[in-house]
């Protein structure tokens, strides 16, 4: 028989544990991507001396595979005296990688703010910090929540790459289960199903957030 329900039920709790690791890696990685991406986007607006090195870093990160970045943080950084556990290295790599994509999204949002908003801020003598915090970002961020949400789901679907450095997330756990029992059908199928379920749930959540943000603006 191809599918063994008894075995499937037996491994479900183990996979449930692994799913929690996957979710943790996703949320932490995305939190980092969202914050760092915004920092990148703002730094790139502060004149060429700052923008240039930031753009170089972004280009470097985008032009190399995420898997290599994960390996780099986990296996190469220790040679420079920075040792990270697998989970931390994986989260940092995800966060940095997606920060470069989020930066582009924020940039589009920032560029959409009319020049008059900046000029009114100067005329009112607001500091640069206040201008960003109170005037620009509250207008620039809500419209970019949908594309940011897409990157959240994309990042989530790339967490199986962390199995390459043996983080016990869903994929790695399924591989271990399979190699112990020589049955791969149930673990891999269940992992796929869990990813599908979580993707659908998060897509629904993102739509909720969008709607809540939409309500804040009476336009």
């Amino acid at each position: 028989m191809l599918w063994d329900w008894g075995y499937a039920l037996e491994i479900l709790p183990v996979l449930g544990q692994a799913a929690i690791i996957t979710i943790e890696a996703t949320l932490l990685g995305f939190a980092m991507a969202a914050v760092l991406g915004l920092v990148f986007a703002i730094l790139r607006m502060l004149g060429p001396a700052v923008a240039w090195p930031v753009s170089m870093l972004i280009e470097l990160v985008r032009s190399t595979p995420l898997l290599i970045q994960i390996f780099f943080l986990y296996f190469v950084l220790p040679k420079f005296g920075v040792t990270l556990d697998a989970f931390t290295a994986g989260v940092l790599a995800l966060g940095l990688h997606y920060a470069t994509y989020c930066a582009e999204v924020y940039r589009a949002g920032l560029e959409n703010i009319p020049r008059g908003q900046w000029e009114a801020s100067i005329a009112l003598n607001l500091s640069l910090y206040t201008t960003f915090k109170d005037i620009i970002l509250p207008q620039a961020i809500p419209p970019v929540v949908p594309p940011l949400g897409n990157y959240l789901v994309a990042l989530f679907k790339e967490t199986p790459l962390l199995s390459a450095i043996a983080v016990l997330e869903l994929m790695q756990t399924a591989k271990i289960l399979g190699s112990e029992t020589f049955r791969y059908v149930e673990p891999i199928t269940l992992v796929g199903a869990l990813f599908l379920a979580m993707s659908l749930v998060s897509a629904a959540l993102i739509r909720q957030v969008e709607r809540a943000l939409g309500r804040r603006f009476v336009r």
Binding site: E119, N125, T130
Partner: peptide, 25 residues
């Protein structure tokens, strides 16, 4: 300065528009 196209802050009420700079500056 007052501009041709107003340049009010669209995400703030009229009152908040007038409070922002006095509070933060």
């Amino acid at each position: 300065m007052v501009f041709q196209h107003f340049n009010l802050f669209p995400h703030m009420t009229a009152l908040k528009n007038c409070m922002e700079a006095p509070m933060t500056v």
